[in-house]
């Protein structure tokens, strides 16, 4: 049996959304990440043999409540301090308005550059150069969890008539694909239809994230 078979089974999206993911407790570097990035980080870890990286994820649903990200990261960093040689926060600014960067500076830990995952998945420079205003983005994770992150929190399951109040100014749903998965692409297309938006698929892979984690 390969050593990989001794690791925990991959977490479900539902668990990553609500609970996050506990670290395995081994490795030199602890990544404290958004649950929405878990599968991508685990895939890169396995593909590159990054056994020195341990992964802890905070509940992905914090994506919908940026004001809760900073305290959650602070708590996680403090709890892990002393147990790893290095701690790295795998969040971008993510709607915290610079507060997460300030917290990471205060805690002496690094974090991912950029405004949000949509930006670093495309590459921050490329994303900024596009200057898109009317695009609504979904990643692989958010396509899979569209109902939990978009449809239900906005009340569209109960009040579909609100759709255009939320999305009337958007034009296109851009699916930033981390993987080539025809089923996910079909699901993303269906999400665009539900929101009344045009559809565009952009393969991004892991964008800047691979380089960032590769340097740890």
């Amino acid at each position: 049996m390969s050593p990989a078979s001794t690791t925990n089974p991959p977490p479900t999206d539902e668990r990553l959304t609500v609970d996050g993911l506990a670290p395995e407790g081994r490795g030199r570097v602890l990544l404290i990440a958004c649950g929405a990035l878990a599968r991508e980080i685990l895939a890169m870890k396995e593909a590159n043999g990054w056994d020195h990286l341990d992964l802890q994820c905070l509940p992905a649903i914090l994506h919908n409540a940026p004001q809760r990200i900073v305290p959650a990261v602070e708590t996680a960093v403090e709890a892990a301090r002393g147990r790893y040689a290095e701690i790295f926060v795998v969040y971008a600014d993510c709607g915290t308005g610079g507060l997460l960067q300030a917290a990471c500076d205060r805690l002496g830990v690094g974090m991912v550059e950029g405004p949000h995952c949509y930006s670093f998945f495309e590459g921050n420079a490329v994303f900024a150069a596009r200057g898109e205003v009317t695009a609504f983005y979904l990643t692989d994770f958010l396509v899979r969890q569209f109902d939990a992150f978009v449809w239900r929190p906005l009340g569209l399951d109960r009040h579909p008539e609100l759709r255009d109040m939320y999305f009337g100014n958007y034009e296109t749903l851009v699916y930033q694909a981390q993987t080539d998965d025809p089923l996910l692409t079909e699901k993303a297309k269906a999400c665009a239809e539900r929101l009344g938006l045009a559809f565009e698929r952009r393969f991004t892979g892991y964008g800047d994230l691979g380089g960032v984690l590769g340097r740890l």
């Binding site: 906005l154 009340g155 569209l156 109960r158 009040h159 609100l162 109040m165």
Partner: peptide, 11 residues
């Protein structure tokens, strides 16, 4: 109350 309810009230 949350945003959807406020939007309905506003409407």
């Amino acid at each position: 109350l949350f945003v959807p309810e406020v939007l309905l009230a506003a409407n």
